[in-house]
Computed example of a mutant assay.
Amino acid sequence: MPITIPADLPAYSVLSNEGVMVMSPDHAARQDIRPLRIGLLNLMPKKIQTENQFARLIGATPLQIELSLIRMTEHQTKNTAAEHMEEFYRPFQEIKDQKFDGLIITGAPIEHLAFQEVSYWDELKQVFEWTQTNVHSTFGVCWGGMAMINHFHGITKHSLDQKAFGCFRHLNLQPTSPYLRGFSDDFVIPVSRWTEMSQSDIDNTPGLTTLLGSAGVGPCLVEDPEHRALYIFNHFEYDSDTLKQEYDRDVESGTAINVPVNYYPDDDPSRKPLNRWRSHAHLLYGNWLSEIYQTTPYDVNRIGLETADLRA
């Protein structure tokens, strides 16, 4: 089944050319099926690139998805055309009365700031609380996941002496989890961050379960059933060349940066990187959507009123 997005959104033509099933809202309205309503709260500066990455993953399942793009109300992006933001994004304050089957909260390149120093932190806390009444399942990604687990559980992020940068091997710690159906025992995930969450802090917090983790870069995917949430601190959504773009940017600007670990063949930046995480990325987001589909109320207005267990 296709993902429903506006026909003039750049991702529509990008995904169509890649063979991903996409559908315009007019076409979707003619089908007698309720699509899953998924929101993307996009905190990344390169909005279009991030839209493409997540739309690619959630549009690859047999389910019809209606994707809504959301932004913080007062924060103005400097890296995406104002016309694009005006046409395709809605500020949180305009959509907060709506209900969503799922919400993805992206990362943001503001790791150096304490959470309380982020200009939109107060509104983001409103978003976190809003998910408990208006969203069936939330997926916090990288900084977004760190911020959410901090809000609900008080777990703090810790600065790293050196950037965790590259493709790191991870272990499947909970093979029976419905979110990990089809996962290998170990695999690589792109990582790009200056902070980390402590596994001991997570272990000492009742109700949290680490599903994926790495000896090199710590916990990766954490389940929080009480808040109907998943937190992932790494980047399954990355394109094949995303780490290369980050590396080339830092080299060009003179910023000290290591060659991303286990990314280029023979760690040679002159060679084309290989994507070795794509299949697991599709598995994870497909499993997340499958769990939503099986547990969300058919009447979208019942979201928040019915406390369906995602593990039921």
Rank of each mutant, 00 (worst) to 15 (best):
G39Y: 05
T4A: 11
L230K: 06
E123G: 04
K46R: 04
L212M: 11
P25S: 06
T4S: 14
D101K: 02
R276F: 03
D299I: 08
S214N: 07
G254K: 07
Y231A: 03
I155S: 02
Y179Q: 01
N79C: 12
P219T: 00
S13N: 13
L173D: 12
D266W: 04
L69A: 02
L69M: 11
G140Y: 01
G102C: 02
D248K: 10
Y247D: 07
Y120Q: 06
T77E: 03
Q126G: 10
R271T: 08
F92E: 04
M146Y: 10
R37D: 08
F88Y: 13
I48K: 12
Q294H: 15
Q64G: 09
G254F: 05
V135F: 06
T73I: 01
P25F: 04
T4V: 15
N301F: 10
S159I: 06
S240T: 13
I232E: 00
D97C: 14
L243S: 04
K163N: 09
V188P: 13
D8M: 11
F92M: 04
N42I: 12
Y120I: 02
E87Q: 13
D203E: 11
A308P: 12
T210I: 15
D267E: 15
S270P: 08
I65H: 14
G107E: 04
D122K: 14
S240F: 00
A108E: 01
P297L: 05
T209E: 10
G216R: 13
Q132H: 09
G145M: 11
D299L: 13
L15T: 07
N301Y: 02
H136V: 03
S16C: 04
I48R: 07
Q31M: 15
M44Q: 11
N234D: 14
M146C: 09
P273R: 04
A164M: 06
Q116W: 05
F100E: 06
D241R: 15
K78I: 05
L41N: 00
P190T: 10
W288E: 01
I48G: 03
M146H: 07
I65G: 14
V251F: 08
V135H: 07
S13P: 00
T242K: 10
V222Q: 09
D185F: 09
P219K: 02
Y12L: 12
F183K: 02
R302V: 03
A114D: 15
D250N: 12
T210K: 03
L212Y: 02
D266Y: 08
Q294E: 12
V222S: 08
I70T: 02
G304W: 04
F54G: 05
V222T: 10
L180P: 01
T205I: 02
S68Q: 04
E129P: 00
P62F: 05
E66Y: 09
L212F: 09
A11R: 13
D299E: 12
L9W: 03
L113A: 13
L171N: 14
G102F: 08
T73D: 08
I155E: 08
N17F: 05
G254P: 11
S16R: 10
A229G: 15
W143R: 05
V127K: 02
M72H: 08
D267L: 11
P10S: 10
N275M: 15
T209W: 00
L283P: 05
N287M: 14
I155D: 10
K47Q: 01
P265K: 12
M148S: 14
A147E: 01
S192V: 08
E291C: 13
G216I: 00
H153G: 13
